[in-house]
């Protein structure tokens, strides 16, 4: 009984000391009134604690639960600051996106340039130029190199027919000129000097077996080869010129 009484008294004394400290610590009078209310409630709880224990034993747990709920609703969900990690991640994603856009733009510009060049130098009707750029890291910077160029030509003999008779003639078949460039590490930094991709090789041989593509007209192919070799510094042996197999298509 005496031990229990001394425990109780010690609690009360401690909480009152705590209250006095808090009063001293508080910065101004206006806040003091409010803090005094809360601390007074604590003192009340401590004084009442024997009765509370008689009635219900889990008063502390209940209080703790209430506090936790309060801090969950009031504190954590209140303001969500963006963390530094999140910002860094966003920046990375943005810069990736920007690099992709830049690569696309480079590809388009390169295709237009090659097409212009071919039309001017060989007088061939170039339907489409498709350049595939690959990226290599040279001294910390991402630099592009050409891994594949596909030139699609309109067949020369089909040109007059395309405007005249429609159904009787075979449709325009594209001539595909595909250039493969051997990889060279020191030249990889400049666009236009690049390397071939092995999967491209496999793809082209497969296409040949399928009968979809045949060797292009030697004169046109030679002219295109020469033009590309001259302006984009690609070796002639690495250029393969192919033509699609003739297939009748009804318009």
């Amino acid at each position: 009984m005496v031990a229990w009484l001394s425990d109780w008294l010690r609690d009360i004394i401690a909480i009152i000391l705590l209250a006095v400290f808090v009063e001293l610590l508080l910065p101004n009078k206006a806040m003091q009134r409010y803090a005094r209310l809360v601390v007074g409630l604590f003192i009340l709880l401590t004084i009442l604690s024997p009765i509370l224990k008689l009635i219900q034993s889990d008063i502390g747990a209940k209080l703790e639960e209430g506090m936790k709920q309060w801090s969950k609703t009031a504190m954590t969900s209140d303001v969500q600051m963006t963390s530094l990690n999140q910002i860094a991640k966003n920046a990375e994603a943005l810069s990736d996106k920007r690099a992709l856009e830049a690569a696309k733009l480079t590809e388009r510009t390169l295709e237009a340039a090659i097409r212009e060049e071919l039309i001017q130098s060989t007088k061939a009707t170039v339907n489409e130029v498709d350049a595939v750029l690959k990226w290599v890291t040279v001294s910390g910077r991402q630099t592009p190199y050409i891994s594949q160029i596909t030139v699609t030509l309109a067949s020369v003999q089909d040109k007059p027919d395309a405007s005249g008779k429609e159904s009787a003639v075979e449709s325009v078949q594209p001539v595909i000129v595909q250039i493969e460039i051997e990889p060279s590490a020191n030249e990889a930094s400049a666009p236009g000097q690049g390397s071939a991709s092995p999967d491209f090789e496999a793809e082209s041989s497969e296409e040949r077996q399928g009968g979809k593509w045949t060797e292009a007209d030697p004169a046109t192919a030679g002219a295109i080869r020469k033009a590309i070799t001259r302006s984009w510094s690609v070796e002639a042996e690495q250029i393969r010129v192919r033509q699609p197999a003739q297939q009748p298509v009804n318009k």
Partner: peptide
């Protein structure tokens, strides 16, 4: 002080929060 006497830690936490809020608001 709170640890030595058997005051529940939730009391002290709340009181410290009050002090912190008061100081920050005042400042």
């Amino acid at each position: 002080l709170a640890n030595r006497s058997g005051i529940p830690s939730i009391y002290l936490k709340t009181i410290l929060k009050i002090i912190g809020i008061a100081y920050i608001a005042e400042f």
